[in-house]
Design a protein around this nucleic acid. Structure first.
Length: 798
RNA sequence: GGGGUCGUAGCUCAGCUGGUUAGAGCGCCGGCCUGUCACGCCGGAGGUCGCGAGUUCGAGCCUCGUCGGCCCCGCCA
């Protein structure tokens, strides 16, 4: 709970992606619809050859690129045989003429070329540095035979080729690409930007495509089956792959529902077949034709639509595409920056399409569930007021109030409580939250919470309701449905047994405390810690002897990076203990340690000594790492868990004072109230977190609705009345006008979807996520303000 | 704020102890191909080795700085 629910997103708010496909009253149109890409061909297409490889895709395999325990699991693309694309249209002048295709591609190339000064006359500067020089050098020895052809000037190579091909139409675009390429004058400007490969409107409008006209889609690509054979249909989508045999052309047509093989056969339509040669990846086309059964030997069992194909009688090119910056392949390993820059392409990959569609389904199921439970969806302000403590705020200056700022909400916490005072009784919102903190794989600067609050309830009610919500969401998204009620564990138990307040209970490796045994130990390094009030605690890995000496040393080094004093290990070999500490333990001590920890031959005991909280936290992290190293994390387990009885307050080391573990409005246990002034840190809170496989999904609390209790908590926190009024005055005001008992919780929707979908990064379930530096490579946000903007806001750069 | 790791063709990568003209696969372009589905075959183009300094006779490789991606610690009531 004190950890924010990092997770965020966009798609959730969309009511539900309708495509252009209008549910026309065409006969049978609905029959051919499916609603999702699951089992989509993009993935299954290759199943035949790839089954083995893909089977490896999900299970934890460390990412080669991150020296860490592997959060991203990708497979390197296997080298494939060369398979150039063939076929250009043999006839010019059709709307799909090659001139068109060429222009698109040329524009791309010149753009991608980067830094060449846009206005350089190609032949004149053949001596300038860079590739030109290279080319020139190469030219001399090579100026014989076919190599010399078209290479008078490297910069003009393409031009030469083009003229050779003698296509007048292409010349139309010729000056263009050269002149256009990428960078502005001097290539300066936005240096670190994507630069050269962004097209202008002028360029894109040169690409001739056909209007939709009166064509309307009446089938989805994922829909057609044997029962539809014979039907005349119109399908629209993207060219996923093209297999051009010259005499016959196959296209895998993709829309969000799946993949359909369409066949261009001259026997069906010479015109469509001829023009099909010019199609390229990711062009948007519309095809009309008849659904036909595939010849038996050509059925593709890996494709849901694999028994049929669409034999095309008519083709319309609705949109063309430049050459892609990366392969739209679920297993593609392209650098995330490149993918984010072209997120619209990335999102076409079936996996991401599926993720976002699934997320939509989960979100709408959650809405349905809460609606059924009597909840009201209400919105709270985005431009709001900064509150003290917590994460850093994103600030928005106010033009009409110079010098004042709004803050974007870290969560709608105060507003949702006020809605309870306002009498709505049950509120929820799928809302965006903003926190200006450093990012992680499961944290974004803006993320989405399912936020809810209820009146006249106790903790039990919120927990039960949340369990129902998670059941509804999990079933909608296709994840295993959890059994309810979830197991419960107190904060004390969680930190003692697992070293964390969000335990992963899928495996053992639990912590064992040895402080009492070490008090008299000759290992002074341990004994002294106990003497100072710290603890010695350990974890036994019963098959830890599998770890090499080197791995053990690496663990020691790693633990040090966590800020721990150190990590000691004791390896129980056949012939006794092997350990840097072995000499400090006599036979009796060894026996007692083994008895306590269960250490047996073949096992390794890891020991950490230090202040209780710190030592536990280090062991908690070590526990996760050991589980990964030793392969102890079972796949397919979904351990949902409630952690309850959090402490109300804790010491903040930096500020040297007590701070709220959850937030200052969290209700203490009634029976602990007496200790608020005497032993504040032992007061338990009516706060709870829900945890799945070691990840915090969300948390909440029963709030304080009695002003006198609130006053005591503020006092314990050292917040004086003046500060109270300044910082939370409006909430305290509200609570003073008849506040119902209330409580609620917030779930990180993005994280939830990430786990449910088996993803390892929150970015894969967010339509437009940001990088670790909170930037969006696509829109280039954030960006410096325009001249005048700051002045208007009354701001000056520091 | 700190640690790790990466940055070489559009993409993914190789590049030996510093040494001649920086390679591969995919993609792209051209040609051929009527049952493919990661189609195939033949040919071709494509590189400021992230950027800037330095060391050196010589730097993709060494040093320093810097920018950027990812992972982690701190942080995230």
């Amino acid at each position: 709970m004190r950890r924010p629910l990092r997770a965020g997103a966009v798609a959730a708010r969309r009511p539900g992606g309708r495509l252009g496909a209008r549910p026309q009253a065409r006969a049978g149109a609905r029959l051919l619809r499916t609603d999702d890409v699951r089992g989509h061909g993009g993935r299954s297409r290759r199943a035949g050859r790839d089954r083995g490889r893909r089977a490896l895709r999900r299970p934890a395999r460390p990412d080669r690129r991150s020296g860490d325990l592997g959060h991203r699991f990708r497979v390197r693309r296997r080298a494939a045989p060369d398979r150039p694309r063939g076929g250009r249209p043999r006839t010019r002048g059709s709307t799909l003429g090659c001139g068109l295709a060429r222009r698109v591609r040329d524009a791309d190339r010149s753009g991608g070329r980067g830094r060449r000064p846009p206005d350089r006359p190609p032949p004149a500067r053949a001596g300038t540095p860079g590739r030109t020089r290279r080319g020139a050098q190469r030219e001399e020895p090579d100026a014989k035979g076919r190599q010399a052809r078209g290479r008078a000037c490297p910069a003009d190579r393409r031009g030469g080729d083009r003229r050779e091909a003698g296509d007048a139409a292409r010349h139309a675009g010729e000056a263009g690409p050269e002149a256009r390429g990428g960078h502005g004058p001097g290539g300066g400007g936005s240096r670190r930007r994507r630069g050269g490969d962004t097209m202008t409107t002028e360029e894109t409008t040169q690409i001739a495509t056909e209007p939709l006209g009166d064509w309307r889609r009446d089938t989805n690509c994922g829909g057609p089956r044997l029962e539809h054979v014979g039907r005349e249909v119109t399908a629209m989508g993207w060219v996923a792959t093209r297999r051009d045999h010259g005499g016959i052309v196959f296209i895998d047509l993709r829309d969000r529902t799946g993949i359909l093989q369409v066949v261009f056969d001259p026997d069906d339509s010479p015109d469509a077949h001829r023009r099909a040669h010019g199609l390229r990846s990711e062009w948007v086309i519309a095809v009309r034709g008849r659904i036909a059964a595939r010849p038996a030997e050509t059925v593709n069992p890996d494709l849901p639509t694999g028994q049929v194909e669409l034999r095309v009688s008519e083709l319309r090119v609705l949109g063309s595409s430049r050459a892609l910056p990366f392969a739209l392949d679920d297993e593609d390993q392209t650098n995330e920056n490149v993918r984010l820059k072209h997120r619209y392409l990335d999102l076409r990959r079936p996996r991401l399409t599926h993720n976002l569609l699934s997320r939509h389904r989960a979100t709408s199921a959650v809405r349905r569930y809460l609606d059924e439970q009597g909840f009201v969806e209400l919105e709270t302000p985005i431009l709001t007021r900064s509150t003290p403590e917590g994460a850093r705020d994103y600030l928005v200056p106010s033009r009409v109030n110079p010098g004042s700022v709004y803050a974007l909400p870290q969560s709608p916490q105060i507003f949702k409580q006020i809605l309870m005072v306002a009498g709505f009784e049950r509120y929820y919102q799928v809302c965006r939250c903003f926190r200006d903190e450093d990012l992680r794989a499961d944290r974004q600067p803006e993320f989405t919470q399912v936020d809810l609050e209820m009146s006249f309830v106790g903790q039990e009610d919120v927990l039960r309701l949340t369990e129902g919500l998670l059941v509804a969401g999990a079933s909608a998204i296709g994840a295993p449905v959890p059994e309810t009620p979830f197991p419960r564990m107190t904060y004390h138990e969680a930190t003692t047994r697992f070293g964390t307040d969000r335990p992963d209970t899928r495996f053992g490796l639990e912590l064992v405390e040895l402080s009492d045994l070490m008090r008299e130990s000759k290992a002074r390094i341990l004994a002294e810690v106990v003497a100072r009030g710290g603890i010695v605690s350990g974890i036994v890995a019963d098959d830890g002897a599998r770890l090499s000496r080197r791995e053990l040393d690496e663990l020691v080094a790693w633990v040090q990076t966590l800020g721990a004093g150190g990590l000691a290990w004791i390896r129980a070999n056949e012939d006794g203990w092997q350990s840097p500490l072995a000499k400090f333990f006599d036979e009796g001590e060894r026996e007692r340690v083994c008895e306590r920890t269960g250490l047996r031959t073949g096992g390794v005991l890891f020991l950490v000594a230090g202040p209780r909280k710190h030592a536990q936290s280090v062991l908690g992290q070590l526990r996760l790492r050991l589980a990964q190293m030793l392969g102890k994390i079972p796949e397919g387990r979904w351990n949902y868990l409630w952690v309850t009885e959090f402490p109300l307050l804790e010491e903040n080391a930096e500020a040297k004072r007590l701070v709220a573990v959850h937030h200052p409005f969290t209700s203490p246990f009634e029976e602990d109230l007496d200790k608020l002034e005497t032993e504040p840190e032992s007061v338990r809170a009516l706060a709870y977190d829900v945890v799945l496989n070691g990840t915090e999904l969300g948390g909440g609390s029963i709030r304080i609705h009695r002003p006198e209790v609130q006053a005591r908590v503020f006092r314990a926190l050292g917040i004086d009345p003046q500060q109270q009024r300044d910082q939370f005055g409006f909430l305290l005001d509200a609570l003073s006008f008849g506040a119902p008992p209330h409580g609620g919780l917030a779930l990180g929707l993005d994280r939830l979807c990430m786990l449910w979908l088996g993803e390892n990064s929150i970015r894969d379930v967010i339509a437009f996520p940001k990088t670790q530096r909170a930037a969006d490579p696509m829109s280039d946000a954030p960006a410096p303000p325009a001249p005048g903007q700051l002045r208007e806001l009354g701001l000056r750069p520091v």
